[in-house]
């Protein structure tokens, strides 16, 4: 299941990057394109191992930068930092709580663009920044954070469909029933 999980996460990352570059409805509406990868990284780091986190950071980052004017590799770093940090403190996190998912989602979605911009600026890039960037950052943080519970729901549904159905066992067994009376 672990390999399948990794495969699903990578496939979703690939589709997410494609959706971000091909469908600009939200960008036209509110002037912001939400990054779908940090939230996915939160899901991956809470539900999978370090190999999955590393693969998602490298592949997701490269796919994103390939379709963007970002310097190649810029998007790997924030994803890697998010993934490894959550992995480090995974044993302290209440992984099943929606509240936890939201908080981690907001933190990751807010942190990722800031670190990416810092790297771009440190390499001498000239990204388009202004007061509107604050709105973009806010929208990316909120909408990106809201995506984490969605990813959990989505993957739970997928595994429910693909996994074995859980056998419901009862302590009652008819063959062990003690028949009383004359029989």
């Amino acid at each position: 299941m672990s390999a399948l999980n990794t495969l699903f996460i990578l496939a979703l990352a690939f589709v997410a990057v494609f959706v971000e570059s091909s469908f600009g409805g939200l960008r036209r509406l509110i002037g912001v394109q939400v990054d779908l990868l940090p939230a996915l990284m939160v899901y991956a780091s809470l539900s999978s191992g370090l190999v999955t986190v590393s693969l998602l950071a490298v592949c997701g980052g490269l796919w994103f930068d390939a379709l963007s004017a970002n310097r190649l590799g810029v998007s790997i770093v924030p994803l890697l930092v998010i993934g490894f940090t959550i992995q480090q403190f995974r044993h302290l996190i209440l992984r099943q709580e929606t509240y936890t998912h939201l908080v981690l989602g907001f933190a990751a979605s807010g942190f990722a663009p800031l670190l990416a911009l810092a790297i771009i600026l440190s390499y001498g890039g000239e990204p388009i920044l202004g007061w509107g960037t604050l709105w973009q950052w806010f929208a990316m943080t909120v909408l990106g954070g809201l995506l984490v519970p969605v990813y959990f729901q989505l993957f739970n549904q997928v595994y429910r469909v693909l996994g074995y159905e859980r056998v419901v066992e009862s302590t009652y067994r008819s063959d062990r029933e003690i028949a009383r009376g004359r029989g």
Partner: peptide, 13 residues
């Protein structure tokens, strides 16, 4: 066929 997925660039493919 595509737009830059990052908010800080203006380019298309």
């Amino acid at each position: 066929i595509a737009r830059d997925p990052a908010n800080w660039w203006r380019n298309v493919q």
